[in-house]
Design a protein around this nucleic acid. Structure first.
Length: 518
RNA sequence: GCGCCGCUAGCUCAAUUGGCAGAGCAUCCGGCUCUUAACCGGCAGGUUCGGGGUUCAAGUCCCUGGCGGCGCACCA
């Protein structure tokens, strides 16, 4: 021991500090022994799942003559005299290393003494089973692939603290199989959507996320600033307007899967950044898009679960097409028992109906918006089976084409599943002059205090003035689709790193107002 | 934003009416050549989220701040 006072070092050292100090000592010993704790590469001959698949039927107490090299993170360690059992984990698959002192080479024996749960390690040895039948690799040599300095959570209870799971997703992914499952499912879903669209000739594109004017949806944007241009920019709230400009430019079918940002409340169903799929097709109307939507949802469900039947939050749910199609007005008539309800009724009558059903309304809302309020309050939450809700009022649909048979509504649908909106689509409004009038109405609403109302986007209007074909557009909330198909209750469980407040005051955050020093 | 609930060892959790802060796992030391939540023995580990207050005495009560969860509002 040193002569220095131990007070500072020991009295203030937490258990975590002690554990990490011990691990650093092990690391130092390994380096002294000439072992590189961070080798530049490693070449396993097999993944753990490959070894498991190839030998799943091996009887107990069998030692094959097949030598494999595998790798993974140590998630379990059991010592029994000169025997050591290590549990290796790779991509959520576990395989045991049966380490016999007599079989290991000298270097491996020395390394084994310094190995902890959490370390990454490679092993070369024979495929075998133990007396109890556990498929194992019996290594003759071990290779350190990465030393862990921090301990992993409790091997049995894992990491259950919600906050820590989101803040330290790498730990969550290591110890909680369900986290891994959800994100694997998400990947398969997005791939299936891409495949399906590409199969119909849709071209994937990427449009700006920095917008001079936020558009394409009704939402409060994030504001940012570009130094060189000295320009206010907005993180996009939707890609819609740019994608439709591509249709105006003659791209027949396009889609984009990427992030949008909305500066609004957070909840189990809302994250400030979220992923949307939007697609646009020349010549199509919203009935064509309904067929496309059914196909996309089916493909996603099959990719996720191999079936269109699933259980969501304890309730069975069938996603088998075709989905029910019913107008928004008919749904509200049914829910209120008012068969005489139309968009032509005096506003006071509809407002009174809202009052009857305890639906809060705003004085600025017209009849269309009032009917939508009734729908959102009384109908949407109880629509469990997939339902295309059709023909929303013009008042709430500034970018959608007026219905060919009814000037009060648009050719629009929302797909509702499990009480939630999964998709929103319409026959796109392509009449430049009509679009300008709709924008003007939005600006009036903005002046009346609706800070989510849309602004006039001249570049977009100019594109429409160039001439647009009939166009069918679709938007799908990917996060919510994954929630549904993976059966999870909160959006934070389908986003790898959900937005959280910093867990401690952060004094050295970059200061965006400071002039560049270079 | 508002309301309710939570925060104790690295992890998972206890702590009676306000009365000495504990356990399991992990770590560390010792034992064991077929374990798999291994087992057996031993040592150690605490800013009870931060700050303030009441009290002889605060994890517990009060005030205040932080972070999270849920609900409401807004939306996808």
């Amino acid at each position: 021991m040193s002569d220095e006072p131990e007070l500072d070092a020991t009295d203030e050292a937490s258990k975590l500090d002690e554990i990490m100090a011990v691990r650093r000592e092990k690391l130092a010993r390994l380096r002294e022994a000439g072992i590189d704790p961070h080798p530049p590469r490693f070449r396993p001959s097999h993944t753990l799942i490959e070894v498991r698949d190839a030998h799943h039927a091996l009887p107990a107490e069998t030692e094959t003559d097949e030598v494999v090299t595998v790798a993974g993170r140590i998630v379990g360690r059991r010592e029994l005299g000169r025997l050591t059992f290590l549990v290796l984990r790779e991509d959520g698959v576990d395989l045991q290393l049966f380490c016999r002192s007599g079989t290991l080479d000298d270097a491996a024996r020395a390394l084994l003494a310094e190995l902890d749960v959490g370390d990454w390690v490679g092993a070369t040895g024979v495929v075998m089973t133990t007396r109890t039948g556990e498929l194992s690799v019996g290594p003759s040599t071990l290779t350190l692939l990465g030393k862990g300095l921090r301990p992993l959570p409790d091997k049995w209870h894992g990491l259950t603290d919600t906050e820590q799971r989101y803040r330290q997703r790498e730990v969550d992914l290591t110890v909680n199989p369900d986290a891994r499952r959800v994100f694997a499912t998400r990947s398969r879903i997005v791939s299936a959507l891409r495949r399906t669209l590409q199969g119909h000739g849709y071209v994937e594109v990427e449009t700006p996320m920095l917008h001079p004017i936020p558009g394409g949806a009704s939402a409060r944007p994030f504001v940012t600033h570009h130094h060189t241009l000295d320009l206010e920019l907005y993180l996009r709230i939707a890609p819609e307007l740019y994608l439709k400009r591509l249709i105006a430019g003659g791209m027949r079918r396009v889609f984009e899967v990427n992030r949008s940002f909305r500066n609004e409340g957070m909840s189990p169903r809302h994250n400030p950044e979220f992923t949307m799929l939007e697609s646009y097709a020349a010549y199509d109307d919203y009935t064509d898009i309904m067929a496309l939507t059914e196909e996309l949802i089916t493909a996603a469900a099959l990719a996720a679960n191999g079936s269109t039947d699933l259980e969501h939050q304890g309730r069975p749910l069938s996603l088998a097409a075709p989905f029910r199609r019913v107008t928004l007005l008919d749904l509200v008539r049914e829910a209120t028992g008012r068969d005489d309800l139309t968009y032509d009724l005096p506003r006071a009558d509809v407002a009174a109906l809202c009052a009857t059903h305890d639906v809060d309304v705003d004085d600025a809302w017209g009849v269309g918006r009032l009917v939508v309020a009734l729908y959102e309050e009384l109908v949407e939450p109880v629509l469990w089976e997939p339902t295309f809700v059709l023909d929303h009022p013009v008042e709430v649909s500034p970018l959608a084409r007026t219905h060919r048979d009814d000037p009060a509504v648009t050719e629009r649908f929302e797909l509702i599943v499990g009480g939630r909106e999964l998709a929103n689509a319409f026959s796109e409004l392509v009449d430049a002059d009509e679009q300008r009038r709709r924008f003007t109405a939005q600006v009036a609403a903005r002046h009346a205090g609706d800070d989510e109302a849309m602004r006039i986007d001249e570049a977009y209007l100019r594109a429409m003035e160039l001439g647009m074909p009939p166009t069918g557009g679709l938007g799908v909330g990917i996060d919510r689709l994954v929630m549904l198909l993976a059966d999870v209750a909160t959006i934070r469980d389908v986003i790898l790193f959900p937005t959280l407040r910093p867990d401690r005051p952060d004094d050295d955050r970059p200061d965006t107002d400071r002039p560049d020093t270079d």
